[in-house]
Design a protein around this nucleic acid. Structure first.
Lengths: 132, 132
DNA sequence: ATGCACCTTGTAGTAACTACAAGGTCAAGC
DNA sequence: GCTTGACCTTGTAGTTACTACAAGGTGCAT
């Protein structure tokens, strides 16, 4: 698959795909004889992953670490464990925040269904989540 | 409370707080007679909220909308409902992605506990989540 | 042979900060 | 009273993670 099709499938612009390649987060794919980048399903999955992780607020550095967990077979169990645990902590915190936000948005929608506007407590609802 | 203390409490740099004020996402607080910004608990909560939402990958524009939901008492129920529903959708998607990620990280940690390294399926695990 | 998708390098713009400089004010402690 | 540190201002520039566009070239289908 060429870059344009990969871009359409993943919703990542061609230029951004090349940018990821320059940044070393996406390996340089094989080239066709016309020197076109030739992507397969593995790259597609990886790109999807990068896109999702970025959308979830993970930095490139953090994503690099997550991808390293996936790529690096030569790592010690202790290393994997520590890294995975640290990422897990961040993920748990994000889930907790999002759930609080979801509850509050749900409450507002419910209030609207009864035609009562009701106070918005979105701000307060995230106040108790422990610090990142 | 002055800007420095607010910065320490929220983990947001003084310069970023002033930046948010310039951007209109945080109201200009009253000033002391020495022209120092004088913040109360409401601003602290709002700033905490902004920080959390940014960490969750929401753009400033999206945060502005969420804060508007909270600020704007003069809005129609239909308007609130539509906006809240749209935000809710985004929140649900993010939760789903994070849960998938959490499961996979948990699985890797569990594998490590048995001293078996095991394949990392982080990338694939986010593949099925429906498009943003 | 025309047009489109791709190739390259390079520059510049955007969002959301982050940092630092220059010059000034204020208030607490010695 | 004077120094020190935290704040004030405006302004510029750096960083991250893109995004856009330009200039010039290649491959290939109609």
């Amino acid at each position: 698959m060429r870059i344009g099709q990969l871009a359409r499938i993943t919703g990542v612009k061609s230029e951004t795909i090349r940018f990821y390649e320059r940044e070393g987060i996406l390996a340089a794919p094989p080239r066709t004889k016309a020197n076109y980048r030739d992507y397969g399903p593995a790259e597609e999955a990886r790109l999807h992953f990068i896109r999702r992780a970025r959308d979830l607020g993970f930095s490139m550095a953090r994503i690099r670490e997550l991808l390293d967990l996936s790529d690096d077979a030569v790592r010690s169990c202790a290393g994997i464990d520590a890294l995975a645990r640290s990422h897990l902590g961040e993920v748990e915190r994000k889930i907790a925040s999002l759930k609080a936000l979801r509850t509050e948005l749900g409450r507002m929608i419910a209030a609207c269904e009864q035609d009562t506007v009701g106070d918005c407590r979105i701000i307060d609802v995230l106040a108790d989540i422990t610090e990142p």
